[in-house]
Amino acid sequence: MLNRLPADERRAQLVESAMGIAERGGISSVTIRAVAENAGVSLGVVHYCFDSKEALVAAMGESLVVQLSQALGFAFGQAQSEEQHGGLRGLREVLHSGITAMWPIIEATPNRQLLTYEITAYGLRQQAAGAELAGVIADMQYRTMDAQAVDFLEQSAAHTGTKWTEPVAHIARFALAVIDGIVLRWLVDRDSEGVIAELDDLVQMITGKAVEL
């Protein structure tokens, strides 16, 4: 007999089931029937929790945003807890620690990283077709990353006695756009040594946008 889970737990279970399917076969392989079979529940259970594939994919996007936010928060928090110098040298050190601390998390989950790009593209295509719910996915993903990055940059500057010479939101957007490209390129060629050099270059560029107080 099927265990009766609270609604939130059942939705989370189905989202994880859908993400497992998508990691193996892409968003096109996610269907209500496939999710039901993978989760070991009836079609009715999936339809009760999600009235369409778009709603399910939107929930997948939300889950990935939460996971990404937690990973960024962990990496950035770890960097700021380390002993650092002050001034621009200290800023460079804390930026390097925070940005490179993200990499093992990314490298350990290549299929999930690829899935974030797929969901973003899917959401944008659905938005262009008039599906407002799907269009929210990409916006939410980037707004969450922006907020985490801005907080990290502001705290890093305060911690090292430096200040930014440009709006922090612009610097965060630039840094995340570069990281986005680095991750996508790595998914293609898996050149981890190249990634480390590229992240070092990014840290140098970002540090160049700050001055000592």
Results as ranks from 00 to 15, higher is better:
S97A: 15
A131R: 11
D139Q: 11
R185Y: 04
A177S: 15
D201T: 14
A36P: 00
T207S: 15
D180V: 05
V178D: 07
R11D: 04
K209G: 02
P104E: 04
A131S: 15
G98S: 08
L133H: 04
T207L: 10
R173C: 05
P6A: 06
E154Q: 12
A7M: 12
G86T: 10
A108Y: 03
V35F: 10
S28E: 15
D8L: 12
L88M: 00
R89T: 14
G194S: 01
A59Y: 01
K53N: 12
D180G: 09
V45S: 13
I182V: 13
G135F: 02
E16M: 10
R190T: 08
D151V: 00
G87T: 01
S52W: 10
V41T: 12
W186Y: 02
Q126C: 14
I119F: 04
L176S: 12
Q70M: 06
R112V: 09
S156T: 07
T144W: 00
G77N: 09
V183T: 11
D151A: 13
Q127R: 12
R185I: 01
V195W: 06
T100F: 11
T165I: 13
I32H: 10
S192M: 06
E82C: 08
A71I: 05
V183P: 09
I21E: 03
L14Q: 07
A36V: 01
H170L: 15
Q84A: 08
F174I: 05
